[in-house]
Amino acid sequence: MRSFAVSLALLFFVATFAQAEVQTKVIQYQVGDKTFDGFLAYDDAIKGPRPGVVVFHEWWGLNDYAKKRTKMLAELGYVAFAADMYGDGKFVDHPKDAGEMAGKVRANVAEWQKRATVALDILKKQPQCDPEKLAAIGYCFGGSTALELAYTGADLDAVATFHAALPTPTEEQAEDIKAKVLVCHGADDGFVPQMAIDAFKEKLADAKVDLDFVAFPGAVHSFTVEDSGKHNNPGMQYNKAADEKSWAMLLDLLKSTLGTN
Rank of each mutant, 00 (worst) to 15 (best):
E111I: 10
T152L: 05
V214I: 11
N63G: 07
D252T: 15
G235P: 11
W59T: 03
T260S: 15
V118I: 11
E132M: 02
I122D: 00
A45H: 10
L254V: 11
P51H: 05
P127R: 05
E58H: 10
E111N: 13
A9F: 14
G153E: 13
I27M: 11
R115K: 15
F213K: 05
Y139A: 03
A74Q: 07
L166H: 08
K67W: 03
M101Q: 14
G99A: 07
D33K: 14
I177S: 05
Y86P: 06
A20G: 04
I27R: 09
M249R: 15
D188H: 07
P217E: 09
A154W: 00
A107N: 13
Y151R: 13
F81V: 01
F4T: 10
Q126M: 09
P51F: 07
M85D: 04
K34E: 13
L11H: 02
L73A: 12
N261H: 13
A199W: 03
V105G: 02
D33E: 15
G99I: 07
T24F: 06
A9L: 15
A135N: 02
A135T: 02
F39S: 02
P131T: 01
V183P: 00
E21Q: 11
K68Q: 13
Q173M: 08
W247C: 05
V105K: 03
A241I: 07
L62Y: 02
E100A: 13
A107Q: 14
T224D: 09
R2K: 14
V54S: 00
V79L: 07
A174G: 15
V26S: 14
G190C: 07
M72D: 15
E148Q: 14
L251Y: 11
A102W: 04
L147S: 06
A196R: 13
G235M: 13
G87Y: 02
T35L: 09
K34T: 14
P95H: 12
G99M: 08
D44M: 09
A179D: 05
L211R: 11
C184T: 05
D93P: 00
T35E: 10
D37S: 13
P49N: 01
K67D: 02
G259W: 11
D130E: 06
L156W: 04
Y86M: 09
A150M: 02
D212E: 15
K245P: 04
F13E: 10
A98D: 05
K201M: 09
A9K: 08
A82D: 06
K133P: 00
A150P: 01
G259R: 11
S228V: 10
K34W: 07
F213R: 04
E172K: 14
A119H: 03
